[in-house]
């Protein structure tokens, strides 16, 4: 059976790379400390594969035919996609993929009643995968990457309960379908509150963000599913805040283990609340 050895989640707002130098020191500190801790603990956990749940920003499929979970099965995952290079202002990368695990995930989730899709070609990555890869230098490690691009923005998208169900199936897949002793890392990429392209583009819902981070640190699943509804997510920023649904498969897969956060910033020019969580896998509540 495979084993989950690392679990974390954090925002991927492009401005935490592109506008980092202009941010106030307190905001820089949150970005730096969050991703430094994620990088340090990811490397220490020595996963063979990192499965990243991250929302697709309408970059890979027509809005009229939009998959809810799209697994990248390519042997390499390179980015950022051409159009996004100028926007994000980060270096190019090419991370090792893991077609075997990606395809096993597709088959395993299908068997467990979870509809996913796959694509063999290099998916078009914007901030969703590029920010965590570049900030952790994942492409400069031996850790392979399996991206799962999630629909968090084209209604009707899978809500908290469905994403939680995906996480339960994911845990079963890792434990039963993956090879003996395979070490698996899980990462949820997205959030916190923001409304990309909306009238509240510069508004951040700090109260929501802080309450959400607190729930994730406690990782109390009953409270999480009760308090975090689609309506609440959309009230905190239409079309953006729901990206935190990519954290749900991770939290469901690891069970109710507590986590640690590394501060929070709501600097308006990030156009996104920023704070992350690493969960402690050797502690069960």
């Amino acid at each position: 059976m495979g084993q989950i050895v690392f679990a974390a989640a954090a925002p991927h707002a492009p401005a935490i790379v592109g506008l980092f130098d202009r941010a106030p020191p307190d905001s820089q500190k949150v970005v730096k400390e969050t991703y430094a801790a994620i990088t340090r603990e990811l490397l220490a956990a020595r996963p063979d594969v990192l499965i990243v749940f991250a929302n697709d920003h309408l970059a890979n499929s027509r809005i009229t035919l939009y998959p809810d979970f799209l697994i990248g099965t390519a042997a390499r995952h390179s980015g950022p996609h051409e159009w996004f290079q100028e926007w994000i202002g980060c270096r190019d990368y090419s991370a090792k993929g893991n077609p075997a695990v990606a395809k096993a995930l597709f088959q395993g989730m299908t068997r467990r009643g979870i509809r996913m899709s796959t694509r063999d070609e290099n998916l078009k990555f914007d901030d969703n995968i590029s920010v965590p890869v570049v900030l952790t230098d994942l492409d400069r490690t031996d850790i392979t990457l399996v991206p799962v691009l999630q629909n968090c923005t084209v209604p009707p998208f899978p809500g908290p309960e469905k994403c939680y169900e995906v996480g339960i199936a994911l845990r079963d897949f890792i434990e039963r379908d993956l090879p003996q002793d395979m070490r698996v890392g899980l990462f949820g990429s997205g959030g916190l509150s923001h409304e990309p392209g909306g009238v509240k583009y510069y508004k951040i819902d700090e109260a929501f963000d802080r309450a959400f981070l607190d729930l994730c640190v406690r990782n109390d699943h009953k409270a999480l599913l009760k308090d975090i509804t689609v309506d609440r997510l959309e009230a905190a920023g239409i079309g953006g805040t729901a990206e935190v649904l990519s954290w749900f498969p991770v939290m469901a897969a690891i069970g109710e283990r507590p986590g640690r956060s590394f501060g929070y910033t709501g600097w308006p020019s990030f156009r996104c609340g920023v704070g992350g969580v690493i969960w402690d896998l050797d502690t069960r509540q």
Binding site: G18, L58, W87, V154, E195, P196, G197, Y201, G239, G240
Partner: peptide
Amino acid sequence: MHPYLGGQLSRFIWGNDAGKGAIEASNKLV
């Protein structure tokens, strides 16, 4: 219009770089 794609349309019109262009685009959009 989907707001995410609306935001991207504003970048095609006014600018897409991580600094000045995107700021002008998002300011005019909002």
